[in-house]
């Protein structure tokens, strides 16, 4: 029965599931980076399902919030739910609040029929930054929205973060995704609005309602062909390029008092004391021009001159 319903849904933006009360539970997997609001989104969904008279089981990993780690929340609802967790390849909807996290959890999505809702904003984790040089390539996922939409029939990838920031509150991105999610589940729109208003801070209800509308509009405008051609690119990382170019640190030997601060604070270990106990740039190729040595030199012996 579920298969039929899901096949129906895969055509375009049809509700996934429960026009008739689902005998098999509907699985929604919500993933993101700690602190984004994964738990909030899943709470909204779970309480809505509960209100609609379904049995809901929710299971989550939290506590990574302060570390920027991976956070997920399984929400299963239906007439009768036994297990709180979703097996691999069984999620009807995967909601990703961050692009790479969404890719990480893709195997959980039902092949062929699963709907992938993702925010294309990128949060680069520290361990993906293998080279600390400014503007250097990082180990972040290389897959673009176009790549993924070729693999998955229902890939709703919107730059929710930027849209929400334009509305006035970047955190409303979650509500935008909820708006997109609301089109895939067969619950009345007013109920969604009621429940979101209860969960968001009272001052932000207006912005959140606008974000919810934008999410629904996005799905209405959804055009898989455009996505596959890569017209909607993944959100770019907010990183300003260097405006000023600097040369390598120059050390005035006569001023250096060999206090060792620059040697010990250099993150790349490219300074050391020579036989005269004077700081020396021994590994200039490792220097990332972070300017910590210049800033912390109490003798003003290190300076980085900018290129004219």
């Amino acid at each position: 029965m579920m298969t039929e319903l899901n096949q129906a849904s895969s055509k375009n933006a049809q509700p996934v599931a429960q026009t008739q009360v689902a005998k098999v539970p509907v699985n929604v997997l919500i993933v993101g980076v700690g602190g984004q609001g994964v738990i909030m989104v899943s709470k909204v969904l779970a309480s809505l399902c509960q209100q609609q008279g379904y049995e809901v089981k929710q299971s989550e990993v939290h506590g990574m919030a302060k570390r920027g780690g991976s956070v997920f929340s399984h929400v299963r609802f239906g007439e009768k739910v036994y297990s709180p967790t979703i097996p691999v390849g069984q999620a009807d909807v995967l909601v990703a609040l961050e692009w790479a996290e969404g890719l990480r959890w893709l195997p959980y999505l039902k092949p062929e029929t699963g709907i992938f809702i993702a925010d294309t904003q990128k949060i680069v984790p520290p361990f993906a930054c293998r080279d600390r040089k400014h503007g250097a390539a990082n180990g972040y996922a290389k897959e673009t929205v176009a790549d993924i939409s070729q693999m998955i029939s229902n890939c709703y990838a919107a730059d929710a973060g930027t849209t929400a920031a334009e509305l006035g509150n970047a955190r409303a991105a979650n509500t935008l995704l909820l708006g997109m999610l609301s089109t895939t589940l067969d619950f009345p729109e007013s109920e969604w609005r009621d429940i979101i208003s209860k969960f968001v801070p009272p001052k932000t209800i207006d912005i959140n309602m606008q974000a919810f509308d934008q999410g629904r509009e996005w799905v209405e405008r959804y055009d898989p062909a455009a996505l596959a051609q890569g017209q909607a690119e993944a959100g770019s990382v907010a990183q300003q390029p260097h405006q000023v170019q600097f040369e390598l640190p120059v050390i005035t030997e006569a001023w250096c008092k060999s206090c060792d601060i620059c040697v010990k604070f250099c993150p790349e270990r490219c300074l050391s004391l020579n036989e005269n106990q004077v700081a020396e740039l021994t590994k200039p190729e490792l220097c990332t021009l972070c300017r910590i040595c210049e800033r912390l030199c109490p003798d003003f012996a290190i300076s980085l001159n900018y290129k004219h």
Partner: peptide, 21 residues
């Protein structure tokens, strides 16, 4: 160095004194 009297350097502070920073 635009703000220092360079002829007076190196200054009299001990090695590693935070006053320079």
């Amino acid at each position: 160095r635009d703000y220092l009297r360079e002829h007076m350097f190196p200054h009299f502070l001990c090695p590693g004194c935070g006053h320079g920073i």
